[in-house]
Structures are given as C-alpha cells and as structure tokens.
C-alpha cells in the first residue's frame, strides 16, 4: 500500500521528461503553422488562432456538440449491431464446417470492397434515414469482429476444454459460454479495435454523402462555403474521436490480457 504513491511520483517525473520533446515539437509545429499562415492565403492555410476561434464559435453556437452527438449515436448503434451480428456469424463460422464453407466467402468479399463504394447502393436500398446510415456503419465494422470471433473459436483451447469437461460442463453451448468465448476475449477485443476504426470511416462517409446531419455533413457544408478554418476546427474533434475510441478499446484489451496472464 505504501509503495504506490512513491511509484506514481517517480513515474510522473519520468513521464514529464518523456513529454518534453512532444511539447517542444507541438510548440514548434504551432509556431511554424502560424508563421506560414501569415504568408499564405487563409483559404489555403488558416492561422492557428483563427482555427481556435472557429472551434469556439462552433461549440458556442451548438453546431459542433449537436453534430458530434448525432455522429456518436450513429457510431454506437452501428457498432452494437455489428458486434451482435459479428458474434453470431463468428460463432457459426468458427464452430461449424458447413457454415464456414458456405458463409465466409461473402464476408471475405465484403472485406475487400471499400465501404465508400457500397454507400450509394445501401442508401438507395435502405433509404436516406437512420436505417441506411446504420447499415453503412454495420457493413464497415462487422467483418473484423466476425473474423476475430471465428478464428479464435477455431483454435481449440484444448486444456481448458478438457478441464471444463472434467468439471462436468456438458454440451457445446455450455462449453461455448463458459470456456471458448472467454478464452477468445483478447482476440475479439483486437477485432473490435479494428472495427471501430473502420466504423468511424463508414460513419463519416455516410454523413458526408447525405449531408443530413452529423460531423461529416458539418465539415462538407463548411467546405463548400470555403470556410477552411471551420473545416479544420471540425476535423480535429473527429480525428480525436477516432483515436480516443480505439485507445479506449485498446485499454479494455490490455485489461483482459492482464487478467488472462
């Protein structure tokens, strides 16, 4: 118990020293940007200060929070459905030979087709409302989840299954729930991390294509007005959303790996 504070303090001092080059580079970058912006046309490169001002403006007017809220809702909805579908098909394809050889070619095909190329078709077929948009996000995110579930279920955790059997766990479903899926969690989490990255792209593509709300539409609207400072100010939170979400999944992933070892 007494060891923790000292360790944190040492870690803090170490991280400060490690942070120094990062802060130095960031400062240099911002100064260089500001200097370059003072020479160039603000249409091409808006100054740092004008981007910050645009950011405040977007937050104060409520445009950015509303758009981000719509985007996050779409993203979460799409990822939940993608996880459920990916888990279901992943279990089928991972545990059944017939399902593997009949279903997995379609998922492979879905994997090589860029989501952008599917957006017009999906929106024609399923409508320009929430349904079409959610389906785009699901199509973008489902394959990595399905692949991670099926591949980790196919590799039998032999000893664990034996132990569970000797403790009286009977039947494929019970084994799946108590042993196989739990042993597969770290791999599934890394599949989910990939899926989050792809889902953010799917979300942005669907919103940009439709221009009916969300951060993608916000960026495209300001882009068509050639308000470059606002475009930058709206792109930044989207990048942070993508990085933050995959960092979050990565954190959970590491937690499970620690728990496993």
């Amino acid at each position: 118990m007494t060891r923790t504070p000292r360790l944190t303090r040492v870690a803090n001092r170490g991280s400060l020293r490690r942070l120094a080059p990062h802060l130095g580079f960031l400062a240099t970058l911002l100064v260089a940007w500001q200097l370059a912006a003072s020479v160039l046309d603000p249409l091409v490169l808006p100054s740092v200060t004008s981007i910050v001002a645009a950011g405040f403006d977007l937050v104060a007017s409520g445009e950015l929070p509303v758009a981000l809220g719509q985007s996050v809702l779409l993203l979460v909805l799409g990822l939940l459905i993608a996880s459920a579908v990916g888990l279901g098909f992943g279990i089928l394809i991972g545990r059944s030979r017939v399902a593997h050889w009949t279903l997995s070619p379609y998922f492979s095909a879905l994997f090589v087709i860029p989501t952008v190329a599917l957006v017009p078709l999906v929106l024609i077929w399923f409508g320009f409302g929430m349904t079409g948009r959610v389906i785009v996000v699901v199509l973008a995110g489902v394959v990595p989840i399905m692949l991670s579930v099926s591949s980790s279920l196919r590799d039998e955790p032999g000893e664990l299954v034996e132990v569970a059997r000797s403790f009286g766990v009977r039947g494929e479903l019970a084994l799946l729930r108590t042993v196989r899926l739990r042993a597969a969690v770290p791999v599934i989490m890394s599949g989910l991390r990939l899926a989050v990255g792809r889902a953010v792209v799917g979300m942005a593509v669907a919103e940009t294509y439709l221009r009916l709300g969300g951060i993608g539409a916000l960026i495209r609207d300001y882009g068509s007005l050639f308000q470059t400072a606002y475009v930058f100010a709206a792109i930044l939170p989207l990048s942070l959303l993508g990085v933050g979400l995959s960092a979050l999944v990565g954190l959970v992933e590491r937690h499970f790996q620690g728990w496993r070892s």
């Binding site: 249409l43 792209v201 951060i215 882009g223 792109i235 990048s239 995959s246």
Partner: peptide
C-alpha cells in the same frame, strides 16, 4: 514524437479531408 501525428492523420476518415484537398 511524430507517431501521434501520423496516427491522427491515419485515423481521420479521408472523406472529410476532401474540402481541404480541393483548396
């Protein structure tokens, strides 16, 4: 030092960069 910037650019969907590419 450069990794977070690469990672940030990499994580940004390219459709939203299109307005910048146009200018």
């Amino acid at each position: 030092v450069l990794r977070p910037y690469f990672y940030g650019i990499f994580a940004t969907p390219r459709v939203v960069i299109v307005p910048l590419i146009i200018v």
